Computed example of a mutant assay.
Amino acid sequence: MTEARTLKVKTTLARQMAQPGGRTVAEVERRANERLERHRDDVMTTVAGTVTELELVCMAAAPGSEPDVYRLASSLLDTAGFFDTGPLYDAGYSLCEIADRMQASGAWSWPSVQVHVRAMRLILTGGCKADAATEALLTGLRSVAALSRQAT
């Protein structure tokens, strides 16, 4: 019977990783954030367009358009989540939460959705800054979300 031998193969990548030098994690993160920041204006334009779409869905309030609310709100979160949009992200998350609850229960409330969308427009217009006004808006949205939880 022959004895098994173990061979260690050193790949090119392993050799390169073993060499000193390269970039630190902090430097890589900084460079990634700089590159991401270059897209902020385009992303915020997309976010504003999504809020406009939500406003149009709310104005129509057509039966059967309820799933569009969750789809658009979650799309907004997916896009805005790459940047510090603070209160806008919180308002979008709250809208997703109530839309999901209302859709599941069948007890849809367009005024609850409209309040969220109007708050999102105000926050977006204000530059997504966390201040006393946006905190007051978010407190109101939390109240609306609490009422929607009680209704389901």
Rank of each mutant, 00 (worst) to 15 (best):
A62Q: 15
D68V: 12
E135F: 11
E3S: 07
W110G: 01
W108C: 04
W108Q: 05
V144Y: 00
R38L: 08
G49Q: 10
A91D: 13
E34F: 15
G64F: 02
R40S: 08
T2G: 00
N33F: 15
E135C: 09
Y93C: 01
T45C: 04
D84H: 13
S112L: 11
D78Y: 12
M1Y: 09
V113F: 14
G64L: 00
L7K: 08
K10C: 07
H116Y: 05
A145P: 04
V51Q: 05
A73Q: 06
G22R: 08
S109P: 00
L72E: 01
T6F: 12
A61I: 15
A26R: 06
K8S: 06
T50H: 03
T2V: 02
M44D: 06
G22L: 07
G49P: 06
R71P: 04
L124G: 03
V51R: 01
C128D: 11
V144K: 02
A32C: 13
L124S: 09
A32Q: 12
L141V: 07
S148M: 14
L72S: 00
D90H: 07
T125Y: 05
N33A: 14
G127Q: 04
V28D: 03
Y89F: 10
M1S: 15
A99C: 06
D90E: 15
A73E: 07
T125W: 03
S143P: 03
D84S: 13
P63E: 08
R101S: 05
M59W: 06
T6A: 09
T45W: 04
P63Q: 12
T50K: 09
E3L: 10
T152I: 08
D41H: 12
A136G: 05
C128E: 14
L56P: 00
L7E: 14
Y93N: 04
E53N: 10
A99N: 07
L137Q: 08
V144P: 01
L124I: 00
A91N: 09
A133E: 13
L54D: 03
L13R: 13
V47R: 01
A119G: 15
A4R: 14
K10G: 02
T134E: 01
V43Q: 11
R15Y: 13
R30P: 02
D78L: 15
A26P: 02
V9T: 00
C96P: 01
V47N: 06
G127S: 03
A91S: 11
T134N: 05
D68L: 15
L36T: 08
C58D: 05
L56V: 05
A99L: 10
W108V: 01
D84R: 13
T11I: 13
Q114V: 11
T125M: 06
Q114C: 09
C128L: 09
R40W: 07
V28H: 06
H39I: 10
S105A: 08
G126S: 07
D41E: 14
M102Y: 01
L124R: 02
A48V: 10
V57C: 05
R101M: 11
E34T: 10
L141T: 06
T125R: 04
G86D: 15
T11M: 14
K129H: 10
E97M: 10
Q16E: 09
L122P: 00
V117E: 10
L56E: 07
G21H: 05
E27L: 04
G86Q: 14
V28M: 11
C58I: 02
R35W: 09
